[in-house]
Design a protein around this nucleic acid. Structure first.
Lengths: 345, 345
DNA sequence: CTGAAAGCGCTAACAC
DNA sequence: GTGTTAGCGCTTTCAG
């Protein structure tokens, strides 16, 4: 069997040109057929569609988006696919179900040397062409007016600038700390989140406010930088637990560092919750699967994702950007118990 | 202040043309500077770089990928961002950490009318241009040779065709069934998965092999079609439990139907694990959060993602495609116990 | 009804 | 060293 006009060149994707040649029409005609433009003879249309099916042609998102205005794709820009981001992604995915939009999630800091500014970079690289709008997860810098509709989730700056969706971090942190206080803990440590995130600052503030309200002193020695990744938390947790008088409870700014704190404590022979109570923040899936299950502050990532989607679609429709704040809820599980010698109330 | 040559047109992304105009050089020169090609005067280079920074220019992924061969982006193609896919994504993300690759995850079936064939469509739309290679999560059809390096995770056809990564479904199912046998169960039911999935067939085979090895008879009456959705499982579970002599234990082909079986059993006043032991497969987050926690067979999604990444990078380097099978591990939780009147061993 | 031509933003030959 | 030219695959006027 020898190659004929119908055979696309091997090892290459099939382009609109291949279809045009096979159908014996111009590229423009194929384009019109595919996009349902009218002014095409019925016979031509049928023939072209036949070839399209036969060749398995599918238009290139890249080429199409270069030429057209809209792509029907919303972008979810993240620094990395960690639990927080992927959970959000699930919410976005469900909320977008049944709409005309596809989802393109992009982690663009992987190869970038600079960790700061990934969102600006990703947005510039994708915006205006590939995606019609973006949901940016935990941006670390203020986003420039780029002309691309944008919703920021849990932005480091708090509710300023473009549309934002975040959680009541302050209230959640207070609730977490008050829970520990109610259990009789008096020496409560805090594993601080990334200093450049407003959410982390608010969580620390909630911790301090709760202590203050209860008349407990704030001791800087009991606060350590947990960062936001497991590795960063190890040293911080160790620092807290290796104190001459270690805390009897720890409130961590996120679940990942809370879980790491539990691990570090176990390494030292401490038992959770008998020797140490731990509370996290986020309620990622691991929070319930770890042992013991983690008491934490739940922010409904699913709802945040959905809220972001609705706002973005609204912006597409010309409605104004808003700042939405969702409630946080304390979920008590097995990692917290009354302080030794103080049976709580 | 009036607009000058330095001002990009408002509301539009900044293009290489804007930079070229502002720097007073040609577009080609800017391109060379940005891509570090040599043969550019040091002074020119510095000036252009300055403008780039000043304007906040970032090259468009779309335009670049149209012209260039490689994009340094690996695609993860999914039908939808559900728990399984998202967990895999995390594995892929960690494995790609520190490499030169960015990750682009695409859910392209959202808007597509047809659910079947999403992977072919997504691959055609992105492959060859936007992404250098793809990891396809749970493809439902056999993928055509597209010229794009591809690794399929948990393909419905089993390890044939392109590179694949999957779990030891047979071994896992055997382990699950043997666990029930060891507990003293003799009348063990099976909730079968979707018949068109190779993984489901293997899980049933594992069940039968385990029975056989233990010298137990295979009774077709004890096997029902659980499908892959909760609703499908309801009737199947009911059929099993309403038998004149119901099974004392059930091995379900996935966690979702196992959990449904527990629910149906409770409806009938049976208690888990006292009156009925249940084992699932997958170890989804719900498996640990349901009551009682589900004994199940865990497949490490994280490891599967990482394995897929390594294989894909290997294919980029010209190494041959393989079929990798990861072990499955039985996780014993609260939903299984010794059969009544037979205390196991 | 259909096709030729222009151009989206960018890179790679090839000239100058 | 730098600019000119030609496209990547596609859509969109605008002529025929």
């Amino acid at each position: 069997m020898t190659a004929n006009a119908l055979d696309p060149r091997p090892g290459r994707r099939i382009t609109i040109t291949d279809v045009a040649r096979a159908a014996g029409v111009s590229v423009a005609t194929v384009s019109k057929v595919i996009n349902g433009r009218d002014g095409i003879a019925d016979a031509t249309s049928k023939r072209v569609l036949g070839i399209v099916r036969e060749l398995g042609y599918e238009s290139s998102l890249v080429a199409t988006s270069m030429r057209r205005r809209r792509t029907q794709v919303v972008g979810v820009l993240v620094a990395e696919f960690e639990p927080f981001a992927v959970q959000l992604l699930r919410g976005v995915s469900t909320a977008l179900q049944g709409t005309e939009y596809d989802i393109l999630a992009y982690a663009g800091s992987v190869s970038a040397g600079e960790h700061i500014g990934w969102e600006r970079r990703s947005l510039s690289r994708l915006g205006g062409t590939l995606i019609d709008g973006a949901i940016i997860v935990t941006p670390t810098v203020t986003l420039p007016e780029s002309g691309v509709p944008v919703v920021a989730i849990d932005p480091h700056t708090g509710p300023v600038g473009p549309a934002t969706v975040d959680t009541d971090n302050l209230g959640g942190a207070r609730a977490a700390t008050e829970h520990l206080i109610a259990l009789g803990h008096r020496r409560i440590g805090h594993l601080r989140g990334r200093a450049d995130l407003e959410s982390a600052q608010l969580r620390e503030r909630g911790y301090r406010e709760a202590l203050e309200s209860a008349g407990l002193p704030y001791d800087p020695v009991l606060v350590a930088d947990g960062g936001y990744r497991t590795a960063d938390s190890t040293a911080a947790a160790a620092a807290l637990l290796d104190l001459a008088v270690p805390p009897t409870a720890i409130f961590a700014a996120n679940d990942l560092s809370a879980i790491e704190a539990m691990r570090v404590a176990s390494e030292r022979g401490m038992r959770i919750p008998d020797d140490l109570s731990v509370v996290g923040f986020d309620d990622i899936p691991e929070a319930v699967s770890c042992t013991p299950a983690l008491t934490t502050v739940r922010q409904s990532l699913h709802e945040m994702g959905a809220a972001a989607v609705h706002m973005l679609l609204g912006i597409f429709d010309g409605r104004p950007a808003e700042h939405i704040r969702l409630p946080a809820e304390l979920v008590v599980r097995g990692s917290t118990a009354g302080a030794a010698g103080a049976p709580g109330r």
